[in-house]
């Protein structure tokens, strides 16, 4: 339970973590946000991330893994720079969410949980993302795209490919 002498995180993130653990009655409450924010910076939760977070919180690496493996947004392998998450749950399914998924598969040339060779995109079929009334919906990293059609989807992907996509962190 300490601030490690050396950190694998950027100074800004390390400073953020130093503060985060003090916000709660117990340090461990910072675990889930720390994992997610680490993933945002590192791209995935590497062994080094696990080790450092374990030290920062004061728990074992096993504890960290027990927790991180529970949450579906946390991953231990890299994905594309833009992770395209297509919702196919009921409301989206009724509005052809599977059509959007198929379209993305075709356009990106990859399947579920795969990454394009250039590492730019990865694709994932996801559960309900809370955009049911604006279905079909997709999240690219943290940004929502609603009321999609294959054509709109193409435009969105094109924007990201061209570096014009939204990047909320």
């Amino acid at each position: 339970m300490s601030t490690p002498a050396t950190t694998i995180f950027s100074p800004a993130l390390a400073a953020r973590f130093d503060k985060l653990v003090t916000l709660y009655p117990v340090r461990r409450s910072a675990l889930v946000p720390m994992l997610l924010y680490s993933q945002d910076e590192v791209g995935y939760i590497s062994d080094a991330v696990v080790e450092e977070i374990a030290v920062r919180i004061g728990i074992t690496p096993l504890d960290v893994r027990n927790v991180l493996s529970y949450y579906s947004m946390l991953r231990t392998k890299p994905v594309g720079k833009y992770n395209v998450q297509v919702c196919t749950n009921i409301s989206c399914m009724l509005k052809d969410g599977y059509g959007i998924l198929d379209h993305c598969k075709q356009r990106l040339g990859i399947g579920h949980k795969e990454v394009t060779p250039d590492g730019l995109f990865s694709l994932e079929e996801v559960e309900c993302i809370g955009a049911c009334c604006w279905a079909p919906a997709v999240q690219i990293n943290y940004d929502f795209y609603d009321d999609l059609t294959p054509e709109k989807m193409d435009k969105v992907l094109e924007d990201y490919r061209a570096g014009r996509g939204k990047e909320t962190l």
Partner: peptide
């Protein structure tokens, strides 16, 4: 506080677990 992808955490006591840095 942010979650990290888990429907079950919507259950009130699971949410408390999650907020305490545990499995939901």
């Amino acid at each position: 506080q942010t979650g990290a992808g888990a429907y079950e955490v919507g259950e009130e006591s699971a949410l408390m677990e999650s907020l305490e840095g545990k499995r939901g």
